[in-house]
Design a protein around this nucleic acid. Structure first.
Lengths: 149, 149
DNA sequence: GTCCGTGCAAAGTATTTGCAACGCC
DNA sequence: GGCGTTGCAAATACTTTGCACGGAC
């Protein structure tokens, strides 16, 4: 990838000299239709079903590209490997609940406690003169199902 | 490590059949006196100054052990490697501001917005019937110094 | 003396990179 | 046709593991 950062967010694929390829389209389609949070390897195997010739390196390169473009989001749940999710406009800036028992990852939409997060962001910016661009929140604990006796 | 999880949090070193060794003492001392957040390799080289014979594997094993014991905390700032910090009682459950420009990591004590976080936790537990054990918050953005013209 | 802990080297896992072939525009 | 993109294999980066020796209790 030899494009300057300025290009990614402001322009579409073509304007950046980027090409719409089978691999990229398939990956976007897959993630946009997936509820969960997939690892690179999971994505690789799912794409194999559609594009048997695809390589793992391409998956990694495409994931990096789409992350830079702001189309997908890279997530880290302390598993030693990254997970990825499509950024849907209607659920931007949601955060995650991770069950320590079964490993399930639950999306928590931000709408409900929006004011709380806004207050928190404002407080941080004031206290530290720090411009907050993204707030990442993970709650580790025990989910409904694993609490049962 | 062949000890059951029950042992770690409730008991001290000896009660678990754990031995107080030079490596462990030196690592605890180092982290407890360090303000920042060190990687395993940084810790390794710092310990080399005191214990020239120490191996990287021992550092990793000790870090894992102390994390299990709840003495230190493993952190992930999406750098492809973990960082570690000593858990000081007076600044438990603080979170982190990460500057995207210079990579600086700033500790943000929780005291100030304690009520906000308490509300957030309660809301999550209500909405999803999810028992929150730890809340991890990272704010990615631009720090004071990097905002300057 | 016993058994835990350590150093070393090797293995493991996730991710990145070099390069020639390929395929969009 | 030119140049971005891909697949493959090799390389890299971080972390873990096997094993025999050393050290704490």
């Amino acid at each position: 990838m030899r494009h300057g950062g300025w290009c990614w967010k402001k322009h579409g694929f073509k304007e950046c000299g980027l090409r719409k390829t089978q691999a990229r389209e398939a990956l976007i389609k897959l993630l946009s239709q997936t509820e969960g949070h997939l690892t690179a390897e999971e994505i690789f195997w799912k794409l194999k079903e559609v594009l048997p010739g695809i390589g793992l390196a391409t998956v990694y390169r495409t994931l990096e590209l789409l992350t830079q473009l702001g189309i997908i989001k890279k997530l880290d749940f302390q598993e030693g490997k990254a997970r990825f999710e499509f950024i849907k406009q209607e659920e931007r800036d949601h955060h995650h609940l991770i069950c320590k028992v079964c490993g399930k990852i639950i999306n928590y939409p931000p709408s409900e406690e929006y004011q709380v997060l806004k207050d928190l962001t404002q407080k941080i910016e004031q206290d530290f003169d720090f411009k907050v661009e993204t707030l990442e929140i993970q709650a580790y604990g025990v989910c409904k199902d694993c609490k049962k006796p």
